[in-house]
Simulated scan of single mutants.
Amino acid sequence: MLTRKQSDLLEFIHRRIKADGVPPSFDEMKDALDLRSKSGIHRLITALEERGFIRRLAHRARALEILKLPEAMEARLAAEHAAPEPDPKPADMPADIAALALNLPVMGRIAAGVPISAISEVSHEIAVPGTMLGSGNHYALEVRGDSMIQAGINDGDVVVIRETGTADNGDIVVALIEDQEATLKRFRRNGKRIALEAANPAYETRIYSDEQVRVQGRLVGLIRSY
């Protein structure tokens, strides 16, 4: 049986992986559980790993994999998603067909470091599992740089992006800065100021005015080649 904090952390990690395709950082876990230090998160992670609920992945910064959920939690989360959602696929399309890989355009490279030139042209296509995609249009970008490694995003990864012009605080987004440079960062809004946060302490958070930043899409998945 899990303690309340262990259960809360497991559910938080599960929800973030489902929403973003990558696990949360230790700082985000600490804030979500209202803990004073990351050492408490380390202890909770170790306890969850020892009980077989999660696994830490080697050679990936703070990358976690959910192995199972407690039955009661799994049932509750399943009930939350039981209500039908709008489906862009024809109603008579078989589930196995919908889950097949789809080709997405790779719109060049995106900086997970300092911003690079704005993305503009399709360089090639990549096959993406249909289950990774929801409604709306999607595209892919090849990551260059290491500023998002603590969010589980490494140099050379391919990120799958859902096109959108809006974002919630905490979302990992493609941000276009002054219509010239694009970067992959975590989005935070405070009034008319926007912070683009790295997930690597070697990089500073960059602050811009509302007019300087346009959201181009939100991270929904990640593809890695070994």
Rank of each mutant, 00 (worst) to 15 (best):
L2C: 08
L2A: 04
L9H: 02
L9W: 02
L9K: 02
E11F: 03
F12V: 00
F12Q: 00
H14P: 00
H14Y: 15
I17P: 01
I17C: 04
K18T: 03
F26Q: 05
D27Y: 05
K30P: 00
L33E: 01
L35A: 04
S37E: 04
S37P: 00
S37H: 10
K38S: 05
S39T: 02
L44F: 05
L48Q: 04
E50H: 13
R51E: 13
G52A: 06
R56F: 09
A58T: 06
H59M: 09
R60V: 15
R62G: 10
L67E: 07
L67A: 07
L69K: 05
L69V: 11
P70F: 11
A72S: 11
A75C: 02
R76K: 11
R76M: 08
A78W: 09
A79P: 02
A79W: 10
A79T: 12
H81R: 14
A82K: 10
P84D: 04
P88L: 11
D92E: 04
M93Q: 07
A95K: 13
I97W: 15
I97M: 14
L100A: 12
L100W: 13
L102G: 07
L102V: 15
N103S: 14
P105A: 14
I110Y: 02
A112R: 01
G113N: 09
V114K: 11
V114H: 13
I116Y: 12
I116W: 11
S117C: 05
E121G: 01
A127F: 13
A127D: 13
G130W: 14
L133I: 10
G136R: 08
G136Q: 06
R144E: 14
S147A: 12
S147Y: 01
M148G: 01
G152E: 08
D157R: 13
V158I: 15
R162K: 10
G165M: 05
A167S: 09
D168S: 13
I172E: 00
I177C: 11
I177L: 12
E178R: 15
A182E: 15
R186P: 01
I194L: 07
A198M: 03
P201W: 03
P201S: 09
A202R: 05
Y203C: 03
T205D: 08
E211H: 11
V215R: 07
R224C: 06
Y226Q: 08
